[in-house]
Design a protein around this nucleic acid. Sequence first.
RNA 1: GCCCCCAUCGUCUAGUGGCCCAGGACGCGGCCCUCUCAAGGCCAAAACGAGGAUUCGAAUUCCUCUGGGGGCACCA
Length: 496
Amino acid sequence: MTATKPVRVRFAPSPTGHLHIGGARTALYNYLLARQTGGQFLLRIEDTDRKRFVEGAEEELKNSLRWLGIQWDEGIDVGGDHGPYRQSERKAIYQEYARKLVADGHAYPCFCSAERLERVRTEQQKNKEIPHYDGTCRALSPEEAARRVAAGESHVIRFKTPKEGATTVRDLLRGDITVQNSTLDDYILVKSDGLALYHLAAMVDDHLMGISHVIRGAEWLATLPLHCLIIRAMGWNEPVWAHLSVFLKPSGKGKMSKRESADLIKDGHSIFVKDLADLGYLPEAVVNWVALMGWSYDDHTEIFSMADLIEKFSLERLNPSPAAINFTKFDHFNGVYIRSLTVEDLAQRIQPFFEKAGLKADMPTLLKIAPIIHERLAGLDEAPEIAGFFFRDEVTPEAAELAAKNMTAAQSAKVARDAHAILSALPEITPALAEPPMRSYVEQSGFSAGQVFGILRIAVTGQKVSPPLFESMEIIGREKVLARILRAAETLEGLA
RNA sequence: GCCCCCAUCGUCUAGUGGCCCAGGACGCGGCCCUCUCAAGGCCAAAACGAGGAUUCGAAUUCCUCUGGGGGCACCA
């Protein structure tokens, strides 16, 4: 692979909600690059907005990341030489740099009230102007500003955006992007409560933490010029910027709304990582699926383990266009990964789903049914639905469904009786022992295999769709099988 | 409204001027296999948003339009 210097990258979410697949992808790409180059991946918490703080969000975030197999080398919990890694604990650091910006003439205190700002904004909107700060406090002399600050007057710190000229920034996926400085505003860097806003905090942290590559969502593209301007005003080196395309809803029309995200779970999908395990998804499938939304390796390879991704990922092959979320493809990947599991692994992973369904699923039996449901599972969560009958004492087929297609109840009852006779003559019911005599019975009965086996299937499993019949019978055991067939025959006779 | 970004099958994508009357994958349809359902195998339908320009030659370069997306907070 291309020899690259070790990178220092970071994932810096705010603890305001659940980790969704977009965030997971951002974290993943950062992680991959760090692993590939032998660098470090840091986890930083951007919690400068106390109002939006959600209790437990940080814990959930860490669990989601770990479930996906993404470990961080530095940051909250694990520590490191550049802490603290929670922005709320770095207030003094940001203030120090804000003061430096003011001292150097790159920023200024602003005493305007929120109410006045609101009035200015509505006025500008009425006049069809671009809403922006009108510059009242920018015009203040540094001496007067300093005096008012010293007097304890409430204020924010604004960035003194150049009025003239243009700013050119470079995004790795899109190349040079130039914006006129006149379209930029004097953004607030520090709030009146003294806490920095993202723009300042993130730039200071990235610099102090030695971040070499900033890989983040495309929603930051619009503020990239501001970020570059801050970095240049500080006299720091710029990191490499890579802005990942946003995820669109499955229709491709727009971003997923809060409401739509919540509704997804009704049909077994979710964009929140915390839901995915319960929905029967494998973390390996999530990683593979998400990695391929906005990145590709070549024109045909689709299956990538985490190790493959670490080896093959490259920023150069990132795609800047927005991508619609495709859950059908997700399900496909999940099936692929389920099928690639060993029998032991599969048995382990489906056990909790049986328990959740109220079934006591013992490992020896699980080990026996795993091979026959293996390739029938699109999700782990389907296991109890497909194979629950193995763990139930009784099976209660619908009387009306017991009779086979194009057969009367009487005919079906006869078949059940005959089958019972044939099978009860056997010392045990295994595919090798039971299938040959049943096949010859089918031949001389005049019915089709589908009809005969269909009757037995529903009698024995209670389901119209099941794993292979004789394999299932062997696992259920001779006594139970014979009893269930007998009961079905009686029910059928009652119908006739 | 303003600024910025993006634009290949329904969806994810390959494609960096001739290897492309565009390749792979999901899904869809058909066939095969088959005790049901899957899995598997095979086959098919399906795209370069529009218009200009450059060029011997354009999906690939440039311009305009159109469409889509993101952003315009004392949120991140």
